[in-house]
Simulated scan of single mutants.
Amino acid sequence: MKMALGFLTAILIACIASVAYASDPSPLQDFCVSVNDSVAAVFVNGKICKNPNMVVADDFFFPGLNIPGNTSNPLGSRVTTVNVNQLPRVNTLGISVVRIDYAPYGLNPPHTHPRATEVLLVLEGTLYVGFVTSNNADPNKKNKLFTKYLNCGDAFVFPEGLIHLQFNVGHKNAVAFAGLSSQNPGVITIGNAVFGSYPSINQAVLTKAFQVEKNVIDSLQAQFGWIID
């Protein structure tokens, strides 16, 4: 009985630990305004704190999210990010925000945030949004797509780690803001990561993975690899 109880206790602790580390850890103090990595003496999983006695009100302030982003790029969209790298004061607070501008028919392409759930709020325009579930345990069932058309004032949630997208279906500019449940959500743009990596993924791998001919992979690799500045 004692052995069984000990085994169950170990499983319970493991489950609790896995939940506790599923997102950014809770802060253990009021705030931890980060310092620039380039002047940090050590590297940690996160950011090093500024001396709290040196913290001022401006450490919690970020201006400029009223300014539209430049959408003159192949996708016709621009993401203005405010995470711990732009706003050091969100360090340990488990939150960040982005502004997304879309030209007419602009696209925020399929991508994931490996460390955050995202909630998107549309301020202008009409967006087609959606996300795809992870692989099903049943190999005969496909990944499920959830989609919605959003108008001004509508919100939509993209679960952590799942591939999602937004597309401006209107002939006018669109604007959205999103909150993310991490100080540093990360982003993986699927097409660019797979076909535009450096060095390139072996073409034999890509032709087999996508079940297409080499000339198709050549064409895709030629189109990806650019960076939005």
Rank of each mutant, 00 (worst) to 15 (best):
I67G: 11
Q223M: 02
P199E: 08
H113T: 11
I100L: 01
L127H: 13
P199L: 06
F131H: 15
F31M: 07
P185Q: 06
A193Y: 05
N135V: 15
S38T: 15
G106V: 03
V212F: 01
A57R: 12
I16Y: 04
G179Y: 03
R78G: 02
Q183V: 03
G106F: 08
G225C: 10
P27M: 01
N51L: 06
Q221S: 12
T147H: 09
N202Q: 12
N192D: 09
S34D: 13
V56M: 09
V33L: 00
Y198E: 15
M3I: 12
K2N: 13
N70D: 15
G153E: 04
Q166I: 14
N36S: 14
G196D: 08
V35C: 01
C15S: 12
Q183K: 08
L5G: 01
C152K: 15
A193W: 01
S219W: 01
T126M: 07
W226V: 07
N45A: 15
L123M: 04
L75D: 12
V129I: 13
I188A: 11
N136T: 07
G196E: 10
P63C: 00
V119F: 09
I190D: 10
P27R: 04
T117E: 13
L87D: 10
K172W: 00
L87N: 08
P52W: 09
I48P: 00
K208P: 01
L107Y: 00
V122G: 05
N168L: 00
N184V: 03
D30V: 03
N192Y: 07
K214A: 13
D59G: 09
T112Q: 04
S197P: 02
V175W: 07
I227Y: 11
P68C: 12
P27H: 01
D58G: 14
G179E: 07
Q211I: 00
K50T: 14
D229F: 08
P68M: 12
I100S: 02
F210E: 05
F210L: 05
A10M: 09
D229L: 05
G130P: 00
D24T: 10
D30E: 10
V132T: 14
V212E: 02
A20R: 09
V35K: 06
D30Q: 04
P104S: 01
I13S: 08
V98L: 04
Q211T: 01
S77H: 02
G179P: 03
I228V: 09
K172G: 04
T71E: 10
N36L: 10
A103P: 12
F156Y: 14
V157C: 05
I67E: 14
S200L: 11
P110A: 03
Q211D: 06
V19W: 09
S96Y: 02
T80S: 14
A176W: 05
H164V: 06
V212D: 05
V90H: 02
F177W: 08
H164S: 04
T117N: 11
P199V: 09
A57P: 01
N91H: 04
R89S: 11
T9E: 01
W226N: 12
I217R: 02
I95S: 06
P74E: 07
N36R: 10
S34C: 09
A193V: 04
G64M: 04
D154S: 13
T80P: 01
K214R: 14
S200V: 08
A222V: 07
R78L: 06
